[in-house]
Simulated scan of single mutants.
Amino acid sequence: MAAAGLGWDVKVLDGLGYEELEKLTGVENFPKFKIPSRPVKGSMPEIEFEHPDCVLLVFPSGLSEFKVAYKELSCAISDFSGLDWKGKPNVLSKEHICWDIIYRTAEAAKKPLTMSNLSVVDPFQSSGTFSESSYKDLSLRELVRKRRSAVDMDGSTVMSKETFYQILLHCVPSGSHGGKKHVRQLTLPFRSLAWDSEVHAALFVHRVVGLPKGLYFLVRNENHLDDLKKDTRAEFKWVKPDGCPDDLPLYELASGDCRELSKRLSCHQDIASDGCFSLGMIAHFEPTLRNKGSWMYPRLFWETGVLGQVLYLESHAVGISATGIGCFFDDPVHEVLGLKGSKFQSLYHFTVGGPVVDKRIMSLPAYPGTSDDA
């Protein structure tokens, strides 16, 4: 979003593998850590080694084609191993707890080099417009600097269904493109990701005027729609709600007050039930890992993170707030939806609504000069 606001585009150079990223960042010079067979507590400074994730390519917006030869790039990066890296990272903690499963998962999710050439840049697609009047008069700079995580929701703020639809139109990946299916990630900021959309949203609607309370589903990759209908509860309606835009793949599954349910699923946190709506992000999981590789595991979380950031900015743009919910019960979420096995997996939760402002917290400008901060 920051790059786009300055006239640039961004892509993850996802052909590079973990070894290339280690060399490029100098992380390969860190002491190697032998993963124990069980959780261990003690002094383990080598546990603080870094995990490089990705390289982003920033290039002029509107460019339709460029070439990235990953094999040649990998050879060039290999020369970084001969560099004399300066500095030594500080030890962050005197004592550590090694949760072995975390490090074993990180090992299993390391990506190899992919020998393919990136040459075509997908054309930019703008998101659909349904209710521009829902937005406050804020510049991108003002909006980004006002973005905060709500610590509590007021349990009373409502939004119109038009605003709800407008927010969700910015959450689908392919934009407004003449009735074609949402699959490819072509809109901002999803277009920076190098794969088709794999993350959906199960929505608990609490306080949206003109829309029945209940359980809804936003299908962000419409190639998965048939599987979702087949794999979820047979009694779900799967009908478009009243007034829903044609290019918004939103479906009502079941009507009813689900405030207590959403609260219970999110570790009994009021914040899941006291907003306008909350949601669980549901990934197309096992088939993605099987067909593309186990290295897609962290990338599914990246996609949930990008979706979460869009929801943060959208909520602030309409004058309310939002926050991620990291504590939730995934198996009960699957039970509510009727999902079995690991084809679809709950990865993250989120809530949007009217914030309760903690006046004990002081907010200072994040940057020098004229402040646009909240």
Rank of each mutant, 00 (worst) to 15 (best):
D242F: 11
Q185R: 14
S266Q: 10
V183H: 04
R148I: 03
E132D: 12
R259A: 09
H182W: 07
E162A: 14
T157R: 08
K181N: 11
R145A: 08
V219D: 00
Y251F: 15
A194I: 05
P241F: 05
Q185C: 13
S134R: 05
K180R: 13
W238R: 02
K230A: 14
A201D: 11
S176Q: 13
E235P: 02
L143W: 08
G243Y: 11
L253S: 00
T129F: 08
D227Q: 13
H200W: 04
K240L: 06
C171W: 06
P189K: 01
G243L: 10
D231E: 15
G155N: 05
D242E: 15
R141I: 13
L186I: 08
K180N: 12
E142C: 06
P173L: 02
V151E: 14
D152H: 10
F130R: 04
G243R: 10
V219L: 01
G178H: 13
V205I: 14
L186M: 12
E252I: 12
T232C: 14
A194R: 10
R191L: 05
V144Y: 10
S160Q: 04
K181G: 02
F164I: 09
Y165K: 07
E132S: 14
C244R: 11
L169Y: 02
G178R: 13
G214L: 10
Y135P: 03
Q166R: 09
G210W: 11
P245H: 11
S174F: 04
W238K: 03
E260R: 07
L168I: 07
E142V: 07
E142P: 08
S192R: 15
H224F: 00
G175F: 01
L253A: 00
S133D: 14
K263Y: 05
A201E: 14
L261Y: 04
Y135K: 10
K181S: 11
Y165E: 07
R207G: 04
V208L: 08
D137T: 08
S262D: 11
V172K: 00
P245Q: 11
N221H: 13
E142I: 08
H200N: 15
G179S: 01
D137N: 14
C258H: 06
W238N: 01
D152L: 05
L211M: 13
D154S: 08
L253K: 03
S160P: 09
L211H: 07
A150I: 08
S255A: 13
D226A: 15
T232Y: 04
K146H: 05
R141E: 15
S176C: 09
W195D: 07
P173G: 01
H206E: 06
T157S: 15
Y216M: 11
T163E: 14
P245V: 10
T232S: 15
D196S: 12
K136R: 14
L218M: 06
S131K: 09
F130M: 03
T129P: 00
V209S: 14
R233K: 15
K230Q: 12
E252Q: 15
R207M: 06
K240G: 00
L193P: 03
V151K: 13
D242M: 12
F164E: 02
V219G: 00
L253E: 01
A201Y: 04
D257A: 03
L186P: 04
F130E: 02
